[in-house]
Design a binder for these strands. Structure first.
Lengths: 340, 340
DNA sequence: AAAAATTATGTAAGCGCTTACATTGTGGTG
DNA sequence: CACCACAATGTAAGCGCTTACATAATTTTT
C-alpha cells in the first residue's frame, strides 16, 4: 500500500467553496473570518481529518516550534529529573522536545548538535560549557538561542541555568575537613569534556589547600559514572599504604558505588571511612548508610531552563539563572576515628 | 537583530557556478556528480556553512526522519534505560527522537500523540496498549507505523515489542506461594490506563487462585509509583488485623517504598514480611534487603523497538518481538516464619 | 570517425502553506 | 444615492528543496 495521500489545504478549500487563504486564516487567525464561513470551513476540516503539513508550515514560518536537547545520557537520574521537568514546560508552551544523547563524548555531542540544528530546532538545551569554540561560533552564526544548564559561571556572556559546581564542591570539602579529616581522597568523574566534573574536582582541591592540608594528603582518581568502576576506584584507594579517612565523590553514583564495594570488602562506612556524594539523587537515600551529599534542585532547574529558552526565542535577550545548592547530611560522613 | 538569513541551495549553486540540482545531488547522491564538480561544490558548502532547510526538505521528501515517543515519564529508571537505548539506535540510523511524556494520563497521551504526528514524525513508540480505539483509528488513517512496547500480546494484529507482564507476574506469585506464603497482599500500580499494571495484577491474582488459595487471603491496593505512596500502602496493609506474610509489588519503586517504610516502622523484611518487586532497576540491588524481582531486558527492548520501527518504515510489514523475563532472587523474599 | 551508449548537468515543475496586496461586499454618511 | 471606510475574501507570489525530464558532454562501439 502506498503512502496515504493526506488531505491538503486545497482539498478543504475546494470542499468548503472558499480559497486556500480563507482556510489558512480560519486555522491561524479565526477572528478575521466571518462566522458562517468559518463554521463551514471548520466542519470540512474535521470531516476530512485535516492537519496542516508540518514541513510546509515550518518552511514558510521559518520556525518549527521544536526545542532540542543534547544530554550526556538519559539513563541517569541526574539528568532524567531535570529533563522531565524541561519537557513538561516545553510541552506546556505548545512546543516539542527533540532529544539526543552524547554519551559524554565531545565528538558525538557536536554531531548531535549539528543534527538537531539541521532538523530545524528553534533553540537548544546543552549541558555544561566544555566544548569547542567552533561550536559556539556555529550556534552564533545560525542565531540559535541556547542555554547551558547544570553549571553556572558568573562572568560569562553566555546564558547559564545552573549552579556553581566549584563552590558546592568547595563547601563539601570544607565540611569534610571540619569533621577532622586530614587524609582525603577524591573519586572524580571523568573530567575530559565535562566541566561539571572538573569544577567539582577543582573546588574540592582548592578547599583542601585553603584549609592548609599538604597536597600529598589529597589523592585523586577519575572514574566512569557506574557502580562497578567506582567500586574499583574505591578498592584501589582503600588499598593504599595509608588510606584516607574520607572520600569525596564527584557524584552520588560514584559514592554509592564506593559504599557498595566497601560493604563487599568489609570496610565500614562511615566508621572506617567516610564517603560523600553530589547531586542528591534517590539512591543516596536508599543505600545504607545514606549519602551525605549536595542537594541540587533538578526539577526547578529544568523548568527554568525551558522558560529562559522561551524568553530568548521571543525577545532577543536572556539572563542566566543561578540556583543555590546545599549539603544534605546523612550518615556516610562522620569524624575520623583517630589514628589507626 | 533580525532572524539571520541563512544561505540557501541557490546561494551555493551561484557561487559554485552550477545549478541547484547539482548541489542537491552533491548532498544526497554524491556518486552521481563528477569528482571535480563535487569538490568545488562541497568547498562552497562548507565555506558558507550551508545546511539544507529542514522544512523544505521535509515537505518534498514527505518524511522528516524523526521518530516520536510518548512515554509515561522520563523520570523513572524503568523507561529511562530503554528509552536511552531506543534513542541510541534511532541516532545510529541517522534519525532523531522527539519525546513527549504523558504523566500516565490518557488524555495527555492522546494530545501528545496528535501533536507529534502534526510535527510530522515518521513513526511512533508507545508504551503499552491501553488507549482509546479512536487513537488507533487515527494512526491507521494517517498510516503512521507504531510499536507498542513494554508489553506483549500473543494474538494481536498490532506490533508489540515487550514481554508478557501477566505471565511474569504469575510466575512471581507462584514462587511466593511455593515459599509457603498463604496470606498475600499486592501493592499494584494504578491500573487505570496502564495495561502493564493491570496485567501484573491479574497475573498475580490468577496464580493465587490456581494455587488454591481462598480469595480472601489476597488483598490488593493500588498506589502511585513513588516511595511515599507505596510506603503508605505498606503501612495500611501491615496494620491489618491479620497482616499478610508477603507483599507482591507491581514494580520496584513500590517494593523499595514498602521496604523503606517497613524499616521506619521497625518491621523486618523478610523475617516479618516478604516483599517482591518487578523490573529489576538499580535501586533493587542497593536497598537492603535486595529486592527479589522480575528482571526485564530494558536496553535490548529499547534497541529492538527502534529496529522494528525502522523495518516498518522501510517495508510495510513488521512482526512483534517478545522478550523473556526471569526472576532474580535477592533477600526480600523468604519463607514465612510460621504462625505469629 | 561517426553513431550509439553512457554520464554529467541543467531546466523547471511542483511540494503545501502563508501572506501582501487586490478585489469585492456591506453599511454608514452627507 | 453617490461616496467612503472597513470588513471579508480571493489572487498569486514565494519559501527552499527534490527530481523527472531534457540537454550537453564524454566515452564506447563498430
Amino acid at each position: 500500500m502506498d503512502k496515504l495521500q493526506l488531505p491538503t489545504l486545497e482539498d478543504v478549500a475546494r470542499q468548503a467553496q472558499v480559497s486556500t487563504a480563507t482556510v489558512s486564516r480560519c486555522l491561524s487567525r479565526p477572528e478575521t473570518v466571518k462566522d458562517t464561513t468559518r463554521e463551514r470551513v471548520m466542519q470540512i476540516v474535521s470531516e476530512l481529518g485535516y492537519t496542516p503539513n508540518f514541513g510546509a508550515q515550518a518552511m514558510v514560518a521559518r520556525r518549527t516550534n521544536t526545542i532540542g536537547a543534547v544530554i550526556p545520557t538519559m539513563d541517569n537520574a541526574i539528568f532524567a529529573k531535570g529533563l522531565q521537568a524541561f519537557q513538561e514546560e516545553i510541552s506546556k508552551q505548545g512546543a516539542n522536545l527533540l532529544v539526543a544523547s552524547s554519551s559524554y563524548r565531545k565528538d558525538l555531542e557536536e554531531k548531535q548538535i549539528r543534527s538537531l540544528i539541521a532538523r530545524g530546532v528553534d533553540g537548544l538545551l546543552l549541558i555544561g560549557d566544555d566544548r569547542d569554540e567552533e561550536i559556539y561560533a556555529y550556534l552564533e552564526k545560525r542565531q540559535i538561542p541556547f542555554v547551558l544548564a547544570w553549571n553556572y559561571r558568573e562572568a560569562s556572556s553566555r546564558t547559564y541555568v545552573g549552579f556553581n559546581n566549584f563552590q558546592a564542591s568547595y563547601d563539601m570539602a570544607k565540611l569534610v575537613v571540619e569533621y577532622g579529616h586530614t587524609h582525603i581522597a577524591m573519586i572524580a568523574g571523568i573530567t575530559e569534556g565535562n566541566d561539571r566534573a572538573l569544577d567539582r574536582l577543582a573546588g574540592a582541591g582548592e578547599a583542601l589547600i585553603d584549609s592548609g592540608l599538604p597536597r600529598d594528603n589529597f589523592t585523586v582518581t577519575e572514574s566512569k559514572y557506574d557502580f562497578d568502576a567506582a567500586g574499583n576506584a574505591f578498592e584501589k584507594i582503600s588499598g593504599l599504604g595509608r588510606p584516607p579517612t574520607a572520600i569525596i565523590c564527584g557524584n552520588d553514583v560514584l559514592a554509592v558505588g564506593a559504599i557498595l564495594r566497601a560493604k563487599t570488602l568489609g570496610i565500614r562506612v562511615p566508621q572506617d571511612i567516610s564517603i560523600t556524594g553530589f547531586d542528591d539523587i534517590e539512591i543516596s537515600t536508599i543505600v545504607e548508610p545514606g549519602v551525605t551529599t549536595v542537594h541540587v534542585p533538578h526539577r526547578r532547574m529544568g523548568t527554568s531552563a525551558a522558560s529562559v529558552l522561551f524568553k530568548a526565542l521571543q525577545e532577543q535577550k536572556t539572563r542566566s539563572r543561578k540556583f543555590e545548592t546545599h549539603i544534605v547530611k546523612r550518615q556516610s560522613l562522620c569524624a575520623p576515628s583517630g589514628p589507626p
